[in-house]
């Protein structure tokens, strides 16, 4: 191995390539994370309210937990448009990018895990809490909002931050459908220049910078939400 290959990193075009890749990775991450947390919370509400049979939500969760993420991404990008009605199909392919399908697949996947974390957070709150709040004259929704959910979220916070970490790393699989995120540009650079070492060192450092930040946020959250019962 020669360390001269590191010189490619001095090329402004290469820097721009990695900058764009990093931005795409972050966009993927934030778009999927927002959708995933919202959907995860919604799933818990659906499951607890009984609007849909609990088995339906359960099946949704089990599908996402037991099929590899990369297969889920393929199913959404290549598979689903094939079974849509022709007019939708045309619209989807003309207007929706690989980025869009990656966000759909990633956020559905993360939402399944997040809903389970939230649910076990709620289960961990003793039922006496709800009963006490109702006995004090709070309405069901108020008791839920101020007593149960606030404690459940605090209890589940470390797990929820962990899901964000997992999601950030899973965005790397979007390269398989042509989303130009960090891994994609790393492979592109390696393919064009054969500067293998810098091609993979750079994304490693960038991923570490992002994930270490998330872990630091995680441990802050964990400390601030630690409570004695």
């Amino acid at each position: 191995m020669n360390l001269h290959s590191l010189a490619v990193l001095a090329d402004p075009n290469v820097q721009l390539l990695f900058l764009r890749g990093t931005l795409t990775t972050l966009e993927l991450f934030f778009a999927s994370a927002i959708a995933a947390y919202a959907l995860g919370a919604l799933l818990v509400v659906i499951r607890m309210s009984g609007w849909l049979p609990s088995a339906a939500v359960g099946a949704f969760v089990e599908y996402h937990r037991n099929v590899p993420s990369i297969v889920q991404i393929f199913v959404w990008y290549f598979g689903v448009p094939q079974i849509l009605p022709q007019s939708w199909h045309t619209y989807a392919n003309a207007h929706l990018s690989a980025f869009f399908f990656a966000v759909v697949a990633l956020s559905l996947n993360a939402a399944a895990y997040i809903s389970e974390d939230l649910r076990s957070g709620i289960r961990a709150v003793p039922t006496g809490q709800m009963e006490a709040a109702r006995a004090l004259g709070m309405s069901y929704l108020k008791a839920m909002r101020w007593v149960v959910v606030s404690q459940a979220v605090r209890g589940a916070a470390p797990a929820l931050v962990n899901q964000a970490l997992g999601l950030l790393k899973t965005t790397s699989l979007a390269l398989a459908i042509g989303v130009k995120e960090l891994m994609y540009v790393a492979r592109q650079l390696d393919g064009e220049t054969y500067a293998t070492f810098p091609s993979y060192l750079t994304p490693t450092l960038i991923y570490l910078a992002c994930t270490l930040t998330l872990m630091a946020i995680g441990s802050r959250v964990q400390q601030s939400t630690r409570f004695t019962r």
Partner: peptide
């Protein structure tokens, strides 16, 4: 130019 992992894709 958008690249994929293999010909079928």
């Amino acid at each position: 130019v958008v690249s994929f992992d293999n010909g079928p894709a």
